[in-house]
Amino acid sequence: MDCHDCHQSCQPKRKNTGWKLFGFGSKRSVKNNFTHSSQTTIALVGSPNVGKSLLFNLLTGTYVTVSNYPGTTVEVSKGNTVIAGKKVTFLDTPGMYSLIPITEEESVARDLIMNEAVNLVIHVVDAKHLGRMLNLTLQLIEAQLPLLLVVNMIDEAQKLGIWVDENQLAYQLGIPVVTMAAAQKVGLKKLIAKVADYVQSTPLSVTY
């Protein structure tokens, strides 16, 4: 996918022409277009230095496209992969600490999850700083976004003597949680399985 257009127009535009071909009107809102599309969009969010980009790399193989969206972001990387037989698009966003952005760069990630049609948000946190990073998790839960929490860098945390109880955390938050050491590819399969669960359970497909 080669997208150097501005994000407000490029994705929906492409969808609309697609629909027109099949005799549908193009009046649908951006949001509807997305929920009815056969592809799942998943955004990776989290503070800087938690290994989002590395995880993005692992999930998508490589950086397929680095689009620069004029007026909105420094860079949002976009990459496609197939999970559970469905096309999944991953978005790697600039770091953000909280839902309230402070720099322009941070507002990119927020605008993306607030206004764009993202089917699933994966919040990546550093196991060493779990407590303070859960702040954003709680905000994302409050926002009722479909959410999955990745507790990354458990290897580094374990070296510091910190152990995270994945099940207990999932129970407390009421969302799926995966502990990982992305740099060592530990937990990657588990994450992909959880994403696959999500992709299969949501009725997204539209028959052409």
């Binding site: 309230i100 702040n135 910190i162 207990q168 955390l169 938050l173």
Partner: peptide
């Protein structure tokens, strides 16, 4: 308000962290 909201959230986040992690006694 910002501070109060952040504090409540922080308290809960810290409580959850306490609950789901085993922390070392001494900071390495």
């Amino acid at each position: 308000l910002t501070f109060a909201i952040a504090e409540s959230r922080h308290q809960l986040a810290m409580a959850i962290e306490q609950d789901v992690t085993i922390q070392p006694q001494q900071q390495r």
